[in-house]
Design a protein around this nucleic acid. Structure first.
Length: 221
DNA sequence: TAACCTCGAGATCC
DNA sequence: CTCGAGGTTA
């Protein structure tokens, strides 16, 4: 369920009545107040309040996506959430820090830092936090991120992880899974019955990891 | 090159 | 909602 279900009719009334000036105000709404509006009876009002409340736990990437930062859509929001893990760390980041993320360049980095430099935007974030909006990435890995910025190739089958699980793990640890081995590849994870990618790694001098070494590196062993 | 972001236009649904 | 144009990034 999503706040986006708020129709224009309802939003318009809320704004006209001064009940909502920015989207942090949505969290202060009550079913009683909403029932005063036209075209929104008690049941809908309660559903709406519940949906708004539930959105507090959408996670940092959804929050960043929802703030409306120029050039930050789903993809950039996920990259930022994955790299910094919490709003506090993102707020403390410099433009250079953000620019260094693979997938984010100078334009987006500047857009993000400009957004957070605006005091009214910081106010909105403060108020969202006080309203109980979760400002951390759900499932974020605490501590060192051994794969930060690393390009990983997976080849062959792993015993303890499916390919999707392995990919998810790499991403959550800050790395990215790429499809072919090149000099820019940081590691090749060699599973069972690995194919030519293992040969490519040897030929190009790219470090290889067997499953045990991979699990150890990612802190799962 | 390919995926992604923004925005406006027109199609579609209720 | 989908589409296309125009821009960003690697």
């Amino acid at each position: 369920m999503d706040i986006e279900h708020l129709g224009e009719v309802v939003i318009g009334q809320l704004v006209d009545r001064g009940m909502v000036k920015d989207f942090a105000d949505l969290y202060a709404l009550t079913a009683e107040a909403l029932s005063e509006l036209e075209r929104l009876a008690e049941k809908s009002a309660r559903n709406l309040v519940a949906a708004i409340d539930g959105s507090k736990h959408a996670g940092l990437s959804r929050l960043l996506n929802g703030l409306g930062i120029r050039m930050v859509g789903e993809r950039a929001a996920q990259l930022l959430a994955s790299r910094f893990g919490s709003m506090d760390k993102l707020l403390a980041a410099t433009e250079q820090d953000i620019n260094e993320i693979h997938g984010i360049g100078p334009q987006i980095a500047q857009s993000v830092t400009r957004f957070f430099a605006e005091s009214h935007n910081r106010d909105t974030i403060d108020r969202l936090g006080r309203a109980g909006v979760v400002m951390k990435q759900e499932g974020a890995i605490e501590g060192p991120r051994p794969l930060d910025g690393k390009a990983i190739v997976l080849t062959g089958g792993l015993r303890t992880l499916t390919r999707d699980q392995a990919k998810d793990l790499v991403i959550r640890l800050g790395g990215r899974v790429v499809g072919s081995v090149s000099k820019k590849t940081d590691y090749v994870v060699v599973g069972e019955d690995a194919g030519s990618k293992a040969d490519d790694a040897k030929r190009l001098g790219v470090p290889t990891l067997d499953e045990a070494a991979f699990l150890k590196l990612v802190g799962r062993a």
